[in-house]
Computed example of a mutant assay.
Amino acid sequence: MAGAEAYDFGQLLGEGGFAKVYRARRRSTDEEVAIKVISKAQAKKMKLQARVRNEVRLHRSLSHGHVVQLLDVFEDDASVYLVLELCDRRNLYTFLRQQHRRGGSMPVPMVVVLVRQLLKGLQYLHARGIVHRDLKLSNCLLKFWRDPRGKRRVTLKIADLGFAAQLDHPAQEQFTLCGTPNYIAPEIAKAGAHGLPADLWSAGCIA
């Protein structure tokens, strides 16, 4: 398995409490990817080692057009590296901000397309017993491309499985307080039992 030396690291795309995401290029294939670098020391300090292991375990099992693809995982003494599909450096939050600054809004047909794609990705996760628990605009990445006729298209991909949980059956519930305040379902906000429907609330907030 390749290590960090197999990649040329470039622009910092984003960062959080214990991880940074970089644009990178795989030297052997010239493929552009995103690499999430998780600090082991920070994860330990924040008592999030189990969360990191869970994210890797769940993400490895997934392959769907509306979920960001995990391409590789490796680690060294200091960090865990998640090599991910690159999605144009844009998420739904930054895209909407750009539209607003230009005095415009997202066309209704595009809204319909993106919401459908979000729900397809969510349906895939739920069919595998995975509740995301942190759906929000910034965790919806956008990949722009052109079809054979040259028409610009966009694909939405769900990202960041850091708070995701695997359920043994659809009715199983979790009790962890997690997520982002503006998007979390009321039952999570009250630190109560929650399951797959909590993601539907978050999807509604996004829509």
Score class of each variant (00 low, 15 high):
A203F: 02
L86D: 10
V108M: 08
S105G: 13
D8P: 00
L58R: 05
L12V: 14
F74H: 07
V154H: 02
E55M: 01
V111D: 10
L156R: 03
S138W: 06
L200N: 02
G103A: 07
L118G: 09
R57V: 10
C178M: 01
R90G: 12
M106L: 15
F144T: 14
A50N: 14
A189V: 03
F175M: 14
I38G: 00
F9H: 12
R97G: 08
S61P: 08
V67K: 05
K151A: 14
V154N: 03
V131L: 02
L119M: 07
Q42K: 15
V68N: 08
S61L: 12
L82N: 00
Y183D: 10
V37P: 03
F175G: 14
S138M: 03
P107S: 11
L71H: 12
A24H: 04
W201D: 06
H100P: 06
V113Q: 15
V67S: 08
W145F: 15
D134S: 00
I158A: 02
T29W: 07
I35D: 04
Y81I: 10
I188R: 00
L92R: 00
S105R: 13
P170Q: 01
A189H: 01
K143P: 02
L92C: 06
G104L: 08
A41T: 11
L48Q: 15
F163L: 11
T176S: 07
S138T: 12
V68Q: 03
L141P: 06
L114N: 10
E85Y: 09
E31V: 14
A4Y: 10
G204M: 07
K20R: 15
V56M: 01
V68K: 05
W201R: 09
Q49H: 13
G10S: 13
R89L: 11
D199V: 03
L119G: 03
V52I: 10
Q174W: 08
G179T: 06
L114E: 00
Q98A: 13
K44W: 06
R23G: 11
V108T: 14
A2G: 00
D160N: 05
C140A: 06
T176M: 03
A127S: 14
E32I: 15
L161G: 04
L62S: 03
Q117G: 07
T94S: 14
M46F: 13
A43I: 07
V154M: 04
A159L: 05
L196R: 07
F163I: 01
V83A: 07
K47Y: 11
L137W: 06
D168E: 13
H100N: 14
A207E: 00
Y7N: 00
F95W: 10
E31W: 03
A34C: 04
